[in-house]
């Protein structure tokens, strides 16, 4: 554990809490992509199956359970409790265009051809692109994203950027090097770059955020 990873994990946790609180307090999931949230739930489900097979640390296990739980609650709020407020007409990204290639890639490019390992690889690849329906939704509607949604996206994006710093640190300190995670993590962070720029130049100056189509 190093400071980059710890702050990254806390940022990841903060993102999930921000989203849950936003939906719960406003009793509405307007502007939130249910498709992105379903993909994130798939990411956690396929990656954290190792809860049943391997124990790393109490911290590790607790965080995994919390991520799974928060993610399921978010999906539940969007598709059941506050379904009436879900903006499905604008959440039109074709998820199969992401899931199918990602599944194929996970089968072809992995560390080891085993069930759990392929699911882990699938989750890493899927996470890197899972935010696209959300970004697509914001840019497509031309609507301004709520500031709280921007905070959520920033926290979620910066988490993987911090993981890149963590990987550089671990490479020099431990000789640790996970090619799949690093490449996918870089792709993931690059997808957020445009948003980061807009976030810093607009939201931090008190304006609302629009992503140009």
């Amino acid at each position: 554990m190093n400071i980059f990873r710890l702050v990254g994990d806390l940022s990841h946790l903060a993102a999930l809490i921000i989203l849950l609180l936003k939906i719960w307090k406003s009793r509405s999931c307007a502007g939130v992509s249910g498709k992105s949230q379903i993909m994130f739930a798939m990411v956690y489900m396929t990656r954290y199956l190792d809860l049943f097979t391997t124990f790393v640390s109490v911290y590790n296990s607790v965080m995994k359970v919390v991520f799974l739980l928060f993610s399921f609650v978010t999906v539940y709020l969007i598709y059941f409790k506050f379904k009436a407020t879900y903006d499905g007409n604008h959440d039109t990204f074709r998820v199969e265009f992401l899931v199918v290639p990602v599944a194929g890639l996970a089968v072809l490019v992995n560390h080891e051809f085993s069930f759990l390992e392929i699911l882990w690889t699938f989750s890493i690849y899927l996470e890197s692109v899972a935010i696209l329906p959300q970004l697509f939704m914001i840019s497509k509607t031309g609507c301004e994203a709520e500031t709280i949604t921007s905070h959520y996206l920033f926290a979620l994006g910066i988490y993987r950027a911090l993981y890149i710093a963590n990987w550089i640190f671990r490479y020099y300190m431990e000789g640790f090097f996970d090619f799949i995670a690093i490449v996918a993590g870089c792709v993931q962070t690059i997808l957020y770059c445009d948003f980061f720029y807009l976030y810093v130049t607009k939201v931090w100056k008190g304006k609302r955020l629009t992503i140009p189509a």
Partner: peptide, 10 residues
């Protein structure tokens, strides 16, 4: 490639 399993990151 030198990577560790089990995966110890989140």
């Amino acid at each position: 490639l030198n990577h560790f399993r089990p995966h110890d990151e989140l």
